[in-house]
């Protein structure tokens, strides 16, 4: 359960994204769409408590899982894929306790769900971009979230990995997990979303993809860089 009402989010008192109002229920996929720098990451960070909700109201029901952007992580970090997944079982309460057999089993199961069980001992940074993204998804799975946040999960990801990720996401939805994922790929947004939130400095539209991703709203949000094609699709041109 995730609900924002007339919210402004930002850092150090300065708003990055305003007028955010939406509601997502269990088993639904919310896609945050918008150009780079639109405030998608900030909105996700606000759900994690890492960005401030400056005004309005935000209700976030956890436990929350988080898949960070790949670019935020150091590929030279000396850690194996299996160790990364096991982090999903670390708990802030009882952090001094060693990981149990059950934790290691849950981590192994999560890694198997993204089809990387035989890569457990390989150093994280040596995996391909798509495989790294799957490891991070496995880490989130291992924490058994009810709300899963993914920041640009398909950036720099190969087709095989993308299909693997989408497959797992659909399973999660079937289990009643709420998903929020950000992307600037509008095709993906259309395919995956139950509801779309279109943002660029403020929220421009919220609703089912067929309504939100229309040429009209896109032109509003992207400020004239949206062009209609004869076949009914809309493409965006960078200025």
């Amino acid at each position: 359960m995730l609900r924002y009402h007339q919210a402004a989010v930002g850092y150090r008192g300065v708003p990055v994204l305003t007028d955010v109002t939406f509601e997502v229920g269990p088993g639904q996929i919310l896609v945050l769409a918008g150009p780079n720098g639109a405030g998608k990451s900030t909105l996700i960070k606000s759900m994690l408590g890492q960005a401030e909700v400056l005004s309005g109201k935000a209700t976030i029901d956890g436990p929350t899982g988080y898949v960070p952007q790949l670019g935020d992580l150091d590929p030279d970090f000396p850690i194996s894929a299996g160790q990364v997944v096991l982090m999903g079982r670390y708990r802030p309460r009882g952090w001094w306790r060693p990981t149990s057999k059950a934790d290691r089993r849950a981590a192994a199961t999560a890694l198997a769900r993204v089809d990387l069980q035989e890569r457990s001992r390989v150093r994280f940074g040596l995996l391909s971009g798509g495989q790294r993204q799957r490891v991070l998804l496995a880490r989130a799975l291992a924490s058994e979230p009810r709300l899963l946040l993914l920041d640009e999960p398909f950036n720099g990801v190969d087709v095989v990995s993308q299909q693997a990720i989408v497959g797992v996401l659909r399973e999660l939805v079937a289990d009643g997990v709420t998903l929020v994922l950000s992307t600037h790929d509008l095709g993906l947004a259309r395919d995956l979303a139950d509801v779309v939130c279109l943002v660029n400095g403020r929220q421009w539209a919220f609703g089912p993809p067929s309504e939100v991703l229309s040429a009209e709203t896109l032109r509003l949000a992207y400020g004239g860089h949206a062009i209609d094609l004869p076949d009914g699709r809309t493409v965006l041109v960078d200025p």
Binding site: A8, R12, G13, V14, P15, T18, D19, L54, S55, R202
Partner: peptide
């Protein structure tokens, strides 16, 4: 002059 009050936030939103 630090963090803008919520009133200022609304103003910004109105202008955007």
């Amino acid at each position: 002059t630090g963090p803008p009050s919520s009133r200022q936030v609304t103003t910004t939103a109105g202008l955007a």
